[in-house]
């Protein structure tokens, strides 16, 4: 049996080879900086608020990770957020007074998300449409449907939603519990071998067929999971804003893909992980805070956001290259 210390040493040694290493370093750097320049950044109140605002991107990035690992891409998540948002809000309004108001609205929202994911999955598997362009197509469709359900921002959501969503239990915010629960679910999927099989589809689809995996089913499921996570993100947005907005998700498709890429997941599919996507999403969110507290203008915030993603990905590419050659070198020495 290994001692705890040994296990820890081993872990820290393997750390530079983890896909999320780079985003972790950036994150730690940002946190330290914020400790110095961010006034009261680490107050419980501020952190709770921040985390709540990060939540939708974290969730969408998690969902996007499934799709990308399986060799796909989902550009439709942005409109899907909007669609789930307005469906939930409309149901809340029309069921006002009914005892089942809340569960029905939430379940319907999630149902819409999963169904949309299923449609995306069908398009890219059985109909063999290219993921990028077909999810662009569904992005337009979901967006149109969202506008049909609700023409413009508005609608009333019981304020209790916000109260619950922003509440804390034992000092820990509700959103953290929600995320923890979902991560437990992701962990379950990892342990059932689902994630591994999905990676096989994304990594070498011929090899996946050769191993008699149900390739199409796995890929459809990945899109459904993405839809599921997107719908939860939408519901979080409803709770935060307490109103409906048919344009609420715009930009989330690209931001989530950036987060996934920053987290070290290969956009070609097959390699990467969920922890990375979470770190990547937080990095994206923190850039603005760092620039803000550094006293630079809002224009610099935007510039830095773009540049940091580019630099991080460029560095990430170099890092992987180095790691591979180091691994090969190590072997040669052994032999």
């Amino acid at each position: 049996m290994k001692s705890k210390k040994e296990t820890f040493l081993q872990f820290s040694k393997s750390l530079p080879r983890k896909p999320y290493f780079l985003s972790m370093i950036i994150l730690i750097f940002f946190f330290i900086m914020l400790g110095f320049i961010g006034r009261n950044y680490y107050s419980a109140y501020n952190l709770t608020t921040k985390f709540r605002l990060w939540m939708p991107l974290l969730l969408v990035a998690l969902g996007q990770t499934f799709v990308i690992l399986g060799g796909g891409l989902d550009m439709s998540v942005s409109s899907l957020l909007a669609l789930v948002n307005v469906v939930t809000v409309r149901l809340l309004m029309s069921l006002s007074g009914s005892p089942f108001q809340v569960p029905i609205a939430i379940l319907a929202g999630i149902g819409v998300g999963i169904t949309a994911g299923f449609v995306n999955g069908l398009l890219v598997t059985y109909l063999r449409l290219p993921p990028l362009i077909s999810t662009y197509g569904t992005q337009i469709v979901w967006g149109g449907l969202a506008l049909r359900v609700l023409h413009q921002s508005g609608g009333e959501v019981p304020f209790s939603w916000y109260t619950v969503y922003s509440s804390t239990f034992l000092g820990i915010p509700f959103s953290v519990y929600l995320l923890a629960l979902l991560l437990l679910g992701v962990y379950y999927l990892k342990r059932t071998g689902f994630v591994t099989q999905l990676k096989a589809c994304g990594g070498n689809i011929h090899g996946a067929y050769e191993s008699v995996l149900p390739v199409n089913k796995l890929r459809i499921q990945s899109y459904m999971l993405c839809g599921f996570f997107a719908s939860l993100a939408a519901i979080c947005i409803v709770a935060e804003t307490v109103t409906g907005n048919p344009l609420s998700g715009s930009g989330y498709e690209l931001e989530s893909i950036s987060a996934v890429a920053l987290g070290g997941t290969s956009l070609a599919g097959g390699a990467g992980g969920f922890l990375g996507s979470i770190l990547g999403a937080i990095v994206l969110k923190l850039i603005n805070d760092v620039i803000f507290f550094a006293g630079l203008g809002v224009n610099y915030q935007v510039l830095a956001q773009g540049l940091i993603i580019i630099l991080a990905l460029a560095a990430g590419g170099q890092l992987t290259k180095q790691n591979t050659s180091r691994a090969q070198l190590k072997r040669r020495k052994k032999v």
């Binding site: 891409l73 990028l132 690209l254 893909i257 950036s258 890429a261 956009l267 935007v302 510039l303 956001q305 773009g306 540049l307 993603i309 580019i310 990905l313």
Partner: peptide
Amino acid sequence: LVMTMSMSIVI
């Protein structure tokens, strides 16, 4: 995809 998208943020 990511490169050009990040570039659009820079622009």
